[in-house]
């Protein structure tokens, strides 16, 4: 039995330990020990689901020990973690599987599987009906921001369907980053276990990169140059438009695929433009952090 100790704080900066633990290709029965989690964000939750899925590819579903802190457990329930984890962990985490009430929480979007285009419509519909108040009151964004926010979600979810050729998840949440940033933020996480950017783009673009082709070059191609696997000039706009909108909101956007991660990092973030030689992990993870506007 392999025991994967889940970090106390699990967000986009610390998920690499999960990728490293399960991305080695062995097929040992696995236990994810998440008892000591004190903080987890949507990226952390989706990384847990992804790592659990990879760990179960050998045929034995992994086990998970849930956080001991009641507030963390309650938060996981509000985000629909138990429902999403069914079929990934055995036994499944306890939970009634019903969608939670969001009247008094800052859940922008609970963990939602993205498999078809109708899932994208559902995501946007939920966000339209729920996120406006949080974006306006908590992040102090103007009223029309919910439309821009919906467009971002739509484009990142379509990235799963059109390029991953595999299911994925999306989740979003607002937080108070009082110590880190002195402001509230909205975090959007998208994760899939598909073929990744390198495989998606290789047939169309690998040749022009020659020996440089790999995960980092593929991310540069898509992220910086707007290349896609389609020859149609109208394709490849999604990521470029997301970059522009996130930059307008002084946000952080990063995409991790294979062994590399690329980012548009604002001044408040320490994220480098490119990280290479990370633990190999299938698919892609997209992380967006949008800081709220300052008072006044």
């Amino acid at each position: 039995m392999r025991v994967v100790e889940v970090p106390r704080s699990l967000d986009y900066r610390t998920v690499e330990s999960l990728h490293a633990a399960v991305g080695q290709g062995d097929q040992l029965p696995t236990l994810f020990d998440a008892r000591r989690i004190e903080w987890i964000d949507p990226n952390g939750m989706l990384a847990l689901l992804a790592a659990g899925t990879v760990a179960g590819m050998g045929g034995t579903l992994p086990r998970i020990s849930l956080p001991e802190r009641s507030e963390v457990l309650g938060y996981l329930n509000r985000m629909g973690f138990a429902r999403a984890a069914r079929g990934i962990f055995s036994p499944p985490p306890p939970g009634d599987g019903r969608r939670q009430s969001h009247r008094a929480s800052d859940v922008l979007l609970e963990i939602t599987p993205v498999t078809t285009n109708s899932d994208v419509h559902q995501v946007v519909d939920r966000v339209q009906s729920r996120a406006g108040a949080i974006l306006a009151q908590t992040l102090r964004y103007p009223a029309h921001a919910v439309v821009r926010f919906s467009v971002i979600l739509s484009e990142v979810c379509q990235n799963i369907i059109e390029h991953a050729d595999a299911p994925g998840w999306v989740a979003a949440q607002a937080y108070n980053w009082s110590r880190r940033l002195g402001r509230h933020v909205a975090v959007i996480a998208v994760c899939d276990l598909g073929r990744g950017f390198s495989a998606s783009l290789a047939e169309e673009h690998a040749q022009r990169f020659g020996g440089r082709w790999g995960d980092a070059a593929a991310l540069e191609a898509a992220f910086l140059h707007g290349y896609t696997r389609f020859r149609d000039a109208g394709r490849g706009q999604g990521i470029q438009q997301i970059r522009r909108q996130v930059a307008r909101w002084d946000g952080l956007l990063s995409i991790r695929s294979g062994t590399a991660r690329i980012a548009d990092a604002p001044a408040w973030s320490q994220s480098p433009r490119m990280l290479e030689n990370l633990p190999a992990f299938p698919g892609a993870q997209i992380n967006i952090v949008l800081p709220g506007l300052r008072d006044g």
Binding site: N117, V120, H121, V124, D125, Q128, S150, S154, Q158, I161
Partner: peptide, 12 residues
């Protein structure tokens, strides 16, 4: 037959 008039996704 779309319940919401959201012009999103290429198939739509």
């Amino acid at each position: 037959g779309l319940s919401q008039s959201d012009l999103i996704t290429r198939p739509t």
